[in-house]
Computed example of a mutant assay.
Amino acid sequence: MLDIQLVVAVLFILVISFVGWKMKSLTGSGAIGAIVVGLSIYLGFSIQGLLLLGCFFVSSSLLSKFQSVKKSNLHDILEKGDRRDIVQVLANGGVPAILSLVQATGQSFGQVVLLGFCISIAAANADTWASEIGTLSKQNPRLLLTFKKVERGTSGAVSLLGTCAAVVGSAFIAIGAGLLFSLSWYPIALVILFGFIGNLLDTLLGQTIQVKYICTVCGKLTEKQNHCHNRGLKMKKFSFLNNDGVNFLSIALATMLGLIILS
C-alpha cells in the first residue's frame, strides 16, 4: 500500500532542492546533498524534521540574496560564493542528518536526540544569519579574541548586528522546533542557548584554526589559496580547516555540549 506521507515527503525534498538549484542557492551537487540530508532527516524525524530543515534552508537562502549587491565585495575574501555545493550542504546538514539516522534506529532516547537535532540546526542557522546580516553592518567587525577591527566578511570577526542576528536566528529555529515537536519553554531555551554557542564556536575556530592566506600581490587577507592569479602565503602555520570544516566542527561541538547537559 502506498505511503502517502512518504510520497509527500519525497516530493517536498525534491521540490525544495530543485527550487534551491533554480534560485542559484544550490549547485547541482548541492541539490543532491540536500536530497540526501532531507531523506535522512525524514527517516528520523518525519515531516516535522523536514519542516524544521526547511525553516533553515529557506531563510538562509533568502538572506543570502538580501542586498546581495552590498555583499559582492565578499567574493574577493570568501573561498566559495553564495551557491552551496555538496560539501557546504553536508557541513551544515551533516550533524542533523547523522542524529536523524540515530533516531531512525528505533532505540529509546527520550528527547535527547531530538533536542540535539534541533540544536544542530539552530547552530547552523545562527551562524548563517550572523554571516548574511552581520556583513551589512555599517561598522567594521572586530576579531573575537583581540578586538582588532578587520574587513567585513573576515572569519573570526564579530559585530553587534551579526551577534544579534545569531541570537534571533537560533531563536527562530528553537521556536519553530517548539511548535513542530510540542516542546516546553525549557528545551526551547536550551536550543536557543546552544544554537548561539555554535555560532560563537564557529567564530572562535574561524579566528584560530581556519586557513587564511595573504595575497602576495595585493596584500589582502583571504580564504582563497589563489588570489590575483598567484598562490597566497598561509597566514598561520597550524591552521588546517577551511570554512566548511569549521562549520561542521562548530555545529558538532555545540550539539555535543548540549547533549552532555541534557544527558
Rank of each mutant, 00 (worst) to 15 (best):
A124W: 00
L53I: 07
V102Q: 06
L180C: 08
I4Y: 12
W129L: 08
S263N: 15
R83C: 10
N92Y: 02
L11N: 00
A254G: 08
S239R: 00
G153Y: 06
I261R: 06
L63M: 14
L221E: 15
F248M: 05
P96W: 04
V36C: 10
S72Q: 14
Q103R: 12
L11Y: 02
I214L: 14
L136E: 06
K237I: 10
Y213F: 10
V112Y: 12
V112H: 11
L6K: 11
W21H: 15
N242M: 09
S159N: 03
I133W: 11
G134A: 02
L161K: 12
L74K: 01
G169C: 01
S239H: 06
Q48A: 14
C164Q: 13
A122N: 04
N92T: 03
V19R: 15
V7K: 02
Q103I: 09
F109P: 06
A171M: 10
I32L: 15
I175Q: 02
L253W: 10
S159D: 00
L50K: 01
D3H: 09
D82N: 15
I35V: 13
W185M: 13
V191N: 08
V8M: 13
C215D: 00
A177P: 06
R231E: 15
F18S: 15
T216M: 05
V191T: 12
F240Q: 08
A166E: 00
L201F: 05
E223R: 03
T105C: 03
A122D: 01
K70T: 06
S250K: 09
A130Y: 02
F147C: 13
L90N: 05
K148L: 07
K80V: 04
L26M: 10
I175R: 00
L145V: 09
A254M: 08
K224A: 06
C164N: 14
A165M: 09
N199W: 04
G176E: 09
G134V: 04
L43K: 14
S68G: 12
G206I: 01
K236D: 08
N242H: 07
G169K: 02
I13E: 09
Q207R: 12
Q48E: 15
A34R: 13
F45I: 02
I261D: 01
